[in-house]
Design a protein around this nucleic acid. Structure first.
Length: 204
DNA sequence: CCCGTGATTTAT
DNA sequence: TAAATCACGGGG
Protein backbone atom coordinates (compact mmCIF):
# COMPACT_ATOMS: atom_id res chain seq x y z
CA UNK A 1 0.00 0.00 0.00
CA UNK A 2 1.12 3.49 -0.77
CA UNK A 3 2.05 5.19 2.49
CA UNK A 4 2.07 8.64 1.00
CA UNK A 5 5.39 8.37 -0.79
CA UNK A 6 5.35 10.36 -4.00
CA UNK A 7 7.41 10.50 -7.16
CA UNK A 8 10.98 11.62 -6.71
CA UNK A 9 12.37 14.44 -8.76
CA UNK A 10 14.76 13.16 -11.41
CA UNK A 11 18.17 14.29 -12.59
CA UNK A 12 16.42 16.11 -15.41
CA UNK A 13 14.28 18.06 -12.95
CA UNK A 14 17.40 19.39 -11.28
CA UNK A 15 19.15 20.14 -14.56
CA UNK A 16 17.84 23.66 -14.83
CA UNK A 17 19.03 27.08 -13.77
CA UNK A 18 18.81 28.08 -10.12
CA UNK A 19 16.15 30.80 -10.59
CA UNK A 20 13.81 28.39 -12.33
CA UNK A 21 14.40 25.57 -9.87
CA UNK A 22 13.96 27.85 -6.86
CA UNK A 23 10.46 28.71 -8.08
CA UNK A 24 9.54 25.18 -9.18
CA UNK A 25 10.52 23.71 -5.81
CA UNK A 26 7.76 25.67 -4.07
CA UNK A 27 5.04 23.09 -3.46
CA UNK A 28 7.36 20.08 -3.70
CA UNK A 29 8.07 17.95 -0.64
CA UNK A 30 11.43 17.46 1.05
CA UNK A 31 11.60 13.98 2.56
CA UNK A 32 14.06 12.59 5.10
CA UNK A 33 13.91 9.09 6.50
CA UNK A 34 15.44 8.44 9.94
CA UNK A 35 15.09 5.07 11.64
CA UNK A 36 12.46 4.03 9.13
CA UNK A 37 10.26 7.04 9.89
CA UNK A 38 9.43 9.60 7.22
CA UNK A 39 9.71 13.27 8.03
CA UNK A 40 8.48 15.55 5.30
CA UNK A 41 7.58 19.13 4.60
CA UNK A 42 6.26 21.15 1.68
CA UNK A 43 8.85 23.65 0.48
CA UNK A 44 7.50 27.20 0.92
CA UNK A 45 10.63 29.38 0.68
CA UNK A 46 13.81 29.15 -1.44
CA UNK A 47 16.77 31.19 -2.61
CA UNK A 48 18.80 30.87 -5.82
CA UNK A 49 22.61 31.00 -5.79
CA UNK A 50 23.87 31.53 -9.30
CA UNK A 51 27.44 30.21 -9.14
CA UNK A 52 30.79 31.73 -10.10
CA UNK A 53 29.39 35.19 -10.94
CA UNK A 54 27.27 35.46 -7.77
CA UNK A 55 29.12 37.21 -4.94
CA UNK A 56 26.79 35.67 -2.38
CA UNK A 57 27.47 32.09 -3.51
CA UNK A 58 30.04 29.94 -1.75
CA UNK A 59 31.28 29.09 -5.25
CA UNK A 60 31.84 32.74 -6.21
CA UNK A 61 34.80 33.08 -8.60
CA UNK A 62 35.01 29.32 -8.78
CA UNK A 63 36.02 28.84 -5.16
CA UNK A 64 36.44 25.10 -4.83
CA UNK A 65 37.39 23.56 -1.49
CA UNK A 66 36.56 20.44 0.48
CA UNK A 67 33.42 22.19 1.78
CA UNK A 68 32.12 23.43 -1.57
CA UNK A 69 33.10 20.36 -3.59
CA UNK A 70 29.51 19.01 -3.77
CA UNK A 71 28.46 22.18 -5.60
CA UNK A 72 30.56 20.99 -8.53
CA UNK A 73 28.92 17.57 -8.62
CA UNK A 74 25.97 16.62 -10.82
CA UNK A 75 22.61 18.37 -10.48
CA UNK A 76 20.49 16.74 -7.81
CA UNK A 77 23.35 16.61 -5.30
CA UNK A 78 22.81 17.93 -1.76
CA UNK A 79 25.18 20.63 -0.52
CA UNK A 80 24.95 20.96 3.27
CA UNK A 81 27.21 23.32 5.19
CA UNK A 82 27.77 24.23 8.83
CA UNK A 83 27.83 27.84 9.98
CA UNK A 84 27.78 30.12 13.04
CA UNK A 85 29.22 27.32 15.10
CA UNK A 86 25.89 25.53 15.41
CA UNK A 87 23.72 25.61 12.30
CA UNK A 88 23.37 23.54 9.15
CA UNK A 89 21.81 24.71 5.89
CA UNK A 90 20.79 22.58 2.91
CA UNK A 91 21.12 23.45 -0.76
CA UNK A 92 20.20 21.51 -3.89
CA UNK A 93 22.80 21.63 -6.67
CA UNK A 94 21.34 22.42 -10.09
CA UNK A 95 22.18 23.64 -13.57
CA UNK A 96 24.64 21.95 -15.91
CA UNK A 97 27.16 19.40 -14.63
CA UNK A 98 30.14 21.19 -13.12
CA UNK A 99 28.38 24.55 -12.79
CA UNK A 100 28.37 25.33 -9.05
CA UNK A 101 24.80 26.65 -8.84
CA UNK A 102 22.32 25.75 -6.12
CA UNK A 103 19.01 26.48 -4.43
CA UNK A 104 18.89 27.03 -0.66
CA UNK A 105 15.89 25.51 1.10
CA UNK A 106 14.71 28.16 3.58
CA UNK A 107 11.39 26.94 4.95
CA UNK A 108 8.95 24.04 4.96
CA UNK A 109 5.41 23.39 6.04
CA UNK A 110 5.77 20.23 8.17
CA UNK A 111 3.42 17.47 6.96
CA UNK A 112 4.80 14.10 8.09
CA UNK A 113 6.79 12.99 11.12
CA UNK A 114 5.82 16.16 12.95
CA UNK A 115 6.17 14.52 16.38
CA UNK A 116 9.73 13.50 15.53
CA UNK A 117 10.43 17.06 14.44
CA UNK A 118 9.17 18.45 17.76
CA UNK A 119 11.37 15.93 19.57
CA UNK A 120 14.35 17.21 17.62
CA UNK A 121 13.55 20.89 18.23
CA UNK A 122 12.79 21.11 21.93
CA UNK A 123 12.46 24.88 21.88
CA UNK A 124 9.80 24.98 19.20
CA UNK A 125 6.31 25.34 20.64
CA UNK A 126 4.19 25.61 17.51
CA UNK A 127 4.27 23.72 14.23
CA UNK A 128 5.08 26.91 12.39
CA UNK A 129 8.30 27.29 14.39
CA UNK A 130 9.60 23.87 13.37
CA UNK A 131 10.93 24.52 9.87
CA UNK A 132 10.58 28.30 9.35
CA UNK A 133 14.26 28.91 8.59
CA UNK A 134 17.10 27.13 6.77
CA UNK A 135 18.82 25.87 9.93
CA UNK A 136 15.54 25.03 11.66
CA UNK A 137 14.47 22.69 8.89
CA UNK A 138 17.85 20.96 8.95
CA UNK A 139 17.57 20.45 12.71
CA UNK A 140 13.99 19.17 12.45
CA UNK A 141 14.87 16.69 9.70
CA UNK A 142 18.31 15.79 11.14
CA UNK A 143 20.19 16.99 8.10
CA UNK A 144 23.88 17.69 8.65
CA UNK A 145 27.21 17.61 6.84
CA UNK A 146 27.19 13.83 6.69
CA UNK A 147 24.58 14.34 3.95
CA UNK A 148 26.57 16.88 1.98
CA UNK A 149 27.33 15.34 -1.40
CA UNK A 150 24.57 12.73 -1.37
CA UNK A 151 22.58 12.20 -4.55
CA UNK A 152 18.92 13.14 -4.10
CA UNK A 153 18.07 10.99 -7.14
CA UNK A 154 19.51 7.80 -5.61
CA UNK A 155 17.69 5.57 -3.14
CA UNK A 156 19.04 7.16 0.02
CA UNK A 157 17.46 8.77 3.09
CA UNK A 158 17.01 12.24 1.60
CA UNK A 159 15.10 13.28 -1.51
CA UNK A 160 12.43 15.59 -2.94
CA UNK A 161 9.02 14.47 -4.19
CA UNK A 162 6.85 16.03 -6.81
CA UNK A 163 3.76 17.90 -5.63
CA UNK A 164 1.16 20.32 -6.87
CA UNK A 165 2.87 23.48 -8.03
CA UNK A 166 2.12 27.03 -6.93
CA UNK A 167 -0.40 27.66 -9.68
CA UNK A 168 -2.31 24.45 -8.97
CA UNK A 169 -2.40 25.35 -5.29
CA UNK A 170 -3.59 28.86 -6.01
CA UNK A 171 -0.57 30.32 -4.27
CA UNK A 172 0.63 33.87 -4.75
CA UNK A 173 4.43 33.87 -4.85
CA UNK A 174 6.51 36.63 -3.27
CA UNK A 175 9.94 37.55 -4.65
CA UNK A 176 12.64 39.70 -3.06
CA UNK A 177 16.22 40.03 -1.87
CA UNK A 178 18.02 37.13 -0.24
CA UNK A 179 18.63 37.03 3.52
CA UNK A 180 21.97 37.30 5.32
CA UNK A 181 24.23 38.18 2.38
CA UNK A 182 25.11 41.77 3.20
CA UNK A 183 28.68 41.19 2.02
CA UNK A 184 27.64 40.42 -1.56
CA UNK A 185 28.08 43.85 -3.16
CA UNK A 186 25.87 44.42 -6.19
CA UNK A 187 24.18 41.06 -5.56
CA UNK A 188 22.68 42.06 -2.22
CA UNK A 189 19.48 43.44 -3.68
CA UNK A 190 18.90 41.03 -6.54
CA UNK A 191 15.50 39.38 -6.17
CA UNK A 192 16.61 35.76 -5.87
CA UNK A 193 14.38 34.69 -2.99
CA UNK A 194 10.90 33.27 -3.46
CA UNK A 195 8.23 32.42 -0.92
CA UNK A 196 4.56 31.54 -0.58
CA UNK A 197 2.82 34.82 0.13
CA UNK A 198 1.03 34.85 3.48
CA UNK A 199 2.17 31.36 4.52
CA UNK A 200 2.88 31.19 8.25
CA UNK A 201 5.63 28.60 7.73
CA UNK A 202 7.89 31.04 5.85
CA UNK A 203 10.88 32.45 7.80
CA UNK A 204 10.64 35.84 9.50
C1' DC B 1 19.12 44.59 20.24
C1' DC B 2 23.08 41.00 21.05
C1' DC B 3 25.54 36.90 21.50
C1' DG B 4 26.84 31.77 21.23
C1' DT B 5 29.69 28.69 18.71
C1' DG B 6 33.22 26.43 15.70
C1' DA B 7 34.30 25.19 10.79
C1' DT B 8 36.21 27.42 7.03
C1' DT B 9 38.76 30.70 4.61
C1' DT B 10 42.07 34.25 4.05
C1' DA B 11 45.93 36.79 5.49
C1' DT B 12 50.35 36.75 7.22
C1' DT C 1 49.41 29.95 12.74
C1' DA C 2 46.22 33.53 13.61
C1' DA C 3 42.30 36.34 12.66
C1' DA C 4 38.06 37.26 10.48
C1' DT C 5 34.00 35.70 8.71
C1' DC C 6 29.65 33.43 8.51
C1' DA C 7 23.30 31.79 3.13
C1' DC C 8 21.32 31.66 11.73
C1' DG C 9 18.43 31.18 15.88
C1' DG C 10 17.11 32.33 20.36
C1' DG C 11 16.76 35.32 24.06
C1' DG C 12 16.00 40.22 25.97
Amino acid sequence: MDRGGGVRLTREDYSTDARTLAQRLLGMTLVRKVGGVRRAGVIVETEAYLGVEDEAAHSYRGRRTARTEPMYAQPGTAYVYFTYGMHHCMNVVCGAVGEPCAVLLRALEPVEGVDAMFAQRAKARRKRDLCSGPAKLCAALEIDRALSGVDLCAHGSLWIERGANAEERGWAIGNGARIGIGYAGAWVEKPLRWWVEGDEHVSR
